[in-house]
């Protein structure tokens, strides 16, 4: 794919910024617009942009693993976050658990946050798997 120098250079700087932004969206989701779905999509778009500028191979090298592995990881995190109250406190599946004191930046940490992180990972994994698979064989 032929790309301009500007896009190539810009995407190298944009990737970390966009990723940081996606994490920001993920974390603030509980209080303000955002969340795992949108955050995941933004992160996926960041990688796709990078792959457009530098080629799929470079992006894959950067990722170090197939994005498909993110899917089971995310699913497991989400599922376990629901399982924790069952295992530790004998509460129903997916009961929300919360820390008593607010943590810096994040505010209250709860099991819902981990659930959202799982969603984030699944969305990144699914989107990248689909796009990469298609552009590989296209």
């Amino acid at each position: 794919m032929r790309t301009t120098i500007i896009l190539k250079t810009a995407s190298n700087y944009l990737l970390p910024v966009l990723l940081l932004f996606s994490v920001f969206i993920l974390l603030r989701g509980h209080y303000l617009p955002g969340g795992g779905f949108v955050g995941g999509l933004v992160a996926a778009i960041a990688f796709i942009l990078h792959s457009f500028a530098n080629g799929l191979k470079k992006t894959k090298e950067l990722l170090m693993m197939h994005p498909g592995y993110l899917i089971p990881t995310g699913l497991a995190i989400s599922f376990l976050s629901g399982l924790v109250p069952v295992a530790l406190f004998d509460l129903p599946f997916m009961t929300g658990l919360w820390s008593h004191d607010p943590v810096a930046i994040l505010g209250n940490i709860g099991s819902a946050l981990f659930f959202d992180i799982g969603v984030y990972l699944v969305v990144v994994g699914v989107t990248l798997t689909i796009i990469f698979t298609i552009s590989e064989s296209a």
């Binding site: 779905f37 999509l41 969305v123 699914v126 989107t127 689909i130 298609i134």
Partner: peptide
């Protein structure tokens, strides 16, 4: 989000 999965 689901519809994206469906479309692809």
């Amino acid at each position: 989000v689901i519809s994206f999965g469906l479309q692809s």
